[in-house]
Nucleic acid binder design. Structure first.
Lengths: 292, 292
DNA sequence: AGGAGCTATAGATCACGTCTATGATCAATA
DNA sequence: TATTGATCATAGACGTGATCTATAGCTCCT
């Protein structure tokens, strides 16, 4: 039984319309083509599928049995094609993004809102984790793209730089005397420092910066979230190292102020990370395009 | 979306085996053909369906969605093909026969038993009725073939003569004096005659025979079934006109005897009737072949 | 009798499905 | 590190078979 499945499409329409001529029109074929196709099917089964009469065709008993299967099959294919079109049009589908909570909250969110408004049919899945975790998610295929701090050096990954973040040291009212001063790193280190505890890119970056100047930065307090970094600084428990964009509200309202240093802190870059040589879903491509 | 459904077969096997090479082997194609087929599908949707890696292929999110539909569709087609093969092999199906009760009982039954033994998967449907009723059944498509007395003159029908029946007059002990006599039609008519009441072929035939000899046969008793014809004759209510083959048991055991006439009664022919120019089901063809 | 449907058949044509040959990439070996 | 053996992709050639046009045959209806 080596049948061309295309024949079933012809059979389906012939049965559905009850006319080879009609089927031909539906399929943009000529009537003899349809006639021939049906004949092929009949020959392959060794069974007659249609009664031919002057008004058209009618299923035989055996043709009716075949139709009961083929009809369902063809409907499934139609549904599949509709679904594919919907996926392509982004009427449908899902987008799975990995990244840190703070990046989601302060940076990715507006893009997600925009994306969701434009494509309300796409389900969004956010998976937060540290940069190494996000990389694993990506490699395991659990997310479509990751939003992480650069640089990422991994030959399996492709990273599109998307924007810069400026990290800085901030303090609260308790250290008001520093507000108008320009501190050296050495001076800064005399104060209690609050850093993000986890093995994050930001933490690594600041450690390296201090090392490049010959100092070692050792935090008084380590916390597990950006929110705590901010809260601890506000309460005067120390000076927090935090992304400036994440505390813009506090800086504005004056509950925190930025410590001015005599050396520049290099900005950190945020990138959108995907698997290299792996095709993206339409939704993922669209999102990246939107963020650009 | 004008897609060749053949591509879905290729897609199905590629997804199922996780390898274009394997799919090619399954489908007796070469790997480039499969590769090309998948590419066509992808292009037609504008979506990537597989991740290609050095071990084979893996469905993308969108490919997985497609597969969820196509898998069911392909399974239905496989089932359909199996079913068709079963119908062809007569492992399966139904055979609907029309005819008179008496023909079924005395003539068709052994063939049906034989058929059923050879093809136990075929469901048998027997519809009894008079010849005109059976013809209607056939034209309405309610039966596949009819077993009736010939001649049938209907251009829509095709009749295969299959065997002869000899009708005759029989009587019981009450008319024992006739056993060794040879009667003329005129003499016969002096006795009470029992005929089948319904507008049957047999009734028409005997009427015509008498008319051709210039007589009119008028029954004393009309009954509605062959069984009653026999029973009435046995009980001596008259002389029944009945098919000899239907009373072979009674003739043998002596409860009935055949009246000898001085003119021959022409045999009646039984035929298997089908719609002309209408294909037969495999089961019907097989049955006819068996009866021959 | 003629016309308007329908399907079947015959024969020609050419698109396209399939092939072979080869390249590119990757992973697991030696 | 080079080698081998998988994988899939690409290019180009080939030939089959799907499709076409033209026509016939049939049935029903006017």
């Amino acid at each position: 039984m080596i049948n061309n499945y295309e024949l079933y499409k012809v059979f389906y329409w012939a049965a559905k319309t009850g006319s080879l001529t009609q089927a031909a029109k539906t399929l943009y074929l000529t009537q003899p083509s349809v006639s021939h196709a049906i004949k092929q099917l009949e020959d392959s089964f060794g069974l007659i599928l249609f009664y031919r009469n002057s008004k058209g065709v009618e299923l035989t008993q055996e043709g009716a049995v075949l139709y009961s299967y083929i009809e369902k099959s063809q409907i499934l294919i139609s549904l599949a094609e509709e679904k594919m079109a919907a996926l392509k049009n982004l009427d449908n589908g899902e987008l799975r993004i990995g990244g840190s909570d703070s990046l989601f909250k302060h940076y990715v969110l507006p893009y997600l809102e925009d994306f969701h408004e434009k494509h309300p049919g796409i389900k969004l899945h956010l998976n937060h984790g540290t940069t190494p975790e996000v990389i694993s998610f990506l490699k395991e295929g659990r997310i479509d793209l990751g939003v992480v701090r650069m640089p990422i050096v991994d030959s399996q990954l492709e990273v599109r730089e998307s924007f810069q973040l400026q990290d800085c040291f901030v303090a609260g009212a308790r250290y008001a005397e520093l507000k108008d001063m320009v501190l050296s790193l050495e001076m800064l280190l005399k104060y209690p420092i609050i850093l993000f505890s986890r093995n994050s890119r930001a933490r690594m970056a600041i450690t390296e910066i201090f090392q490049s100047y010959g100092y070692t930065i050792k935090p008084e307090i380590e916390v597990g979230s950006v929110d705590l970094l901010i809260e601890f600084a506000r309460r005067g428990l120390g000076i927090s190292y935090v992304t400036r964009e994440f505390v813009s509200k506090e800086l504005e309202e004056g509950s925190l102020f930025e410590i001015q240093l005599d050396v520049p802190l290099p900005p950190s870059h945020v990138g959108i990370m995907t698997m290299r040589n792996m095709p993206l879903t339409s939704a993922a491509s669209r999102f990246i395009e939107l963020v650009r």
